[in-house]
Write a protein that binds this DNA or RNA. Sequence first.
DNA 1: TATTGTTATACTCTATAACTATA
DNA 2: TATAGTTATAGAGTATAACAATA
Lengths: 166, 166
Amino acid sequence: MGNIRIAVPRGAEAGDGERLGLGVLSSLLGFRFRRIQNHLARGLVSIPDLAANRPGLLSSLAIISANPGVSQVMLAREAGLDKATLVMIIDDLEHAGLARRKRDTDDRRRNLLFTTPKGEKMLEQWIALARGNEAKVRACLTPAEFDQLSEMLDRIYDSCFGAVEG
Amino acid sequence: MGNIRIAVPRGAEAGDGERLGLGVLSSLLGFRFRRIQNHLARGLVSIPDLAANRPGLLSSLAIISANPGVSQVMLAREAGLDKATLVMIIDDLEHAGLARRKRDTDDRRRNLLFTTPKGEKMLEQWIALARGNEAKVRACLTPAEFDQLSEMLDRIYDSCFGAVEG
DNA sequence: TATTGTTATACTCTATAACTATA
DNA sequence: TATAGTTATAGAGTATAACAATA
């Protein structure tokens, strides 16, 4: 279970190779997500040659591409962002000519979102770069494990946060 | 593979129940981590009845508890934080009487970290609360899946970020 | 009255680099 | 010269609430 490993630095420079135990933390997932994401995010910062580079920019473009005509609230929900944050992201995408808003004629409160050809092209390049950034991570997993991990993460998100209820 | 689902809002209020496709995003893990963590973090904000409540506070306390005498850099590496951030966390823990620094007599640059009895007590309560916050997530997984997911996440972190090399 | 999108503001978190003391 | 810890600061990210337009 715990497999707690006491690391008492006794002159021995244990530090480098030693792995610390997680103790009671083993029963939590939240910290595992955070510490991975903390490191992964750093590598992603320098990916695109675009002015602004907010987190969620690439995700949003990809989801718009996969769901042409999606509304902003639906996109926000699927991307795990709030609607206020998304406004700035769509602004950036629109100013860069990668996506565009189109007022819904049926429900004039809504904006329908679409990618541009330029956006599609850029999306391909970004995805390739992002994949490169995750190459080390994928190298730790077999293809079957990757699929399994993806499936579990999607299930968690859809069940817990993707639903209408907050 | 992609199973892309076009969601064209045609008067039909598809919005609520519909699930959007992820398209090319399916090949990435980073966004999956982020969107889950974005939501999970919100629930954790209101957990402890302590003054400051930085992310990483609970994780740090738990790791200290499982590894008495750990140094700050080792802890920072294991928790996925940088050493500057950790200083503030340890300050908070020390001021709250939950942990304490002890100068290493062998290498006087280092601080050895220990929990206090009060810290141990608080840790138990926090872990219980944090587990409650993750209850929904665990409900999505079988016990076997939970272990499998934990193992994969730990492997990813250790292989990619836990090593000495950055 | 509820929802979509928007804006502005304040707050939190993080990254960086410089500094000390020890080694 | 390198490492452990500290500090200060600027910048990035996020949450909040109020608002207009539409339903």
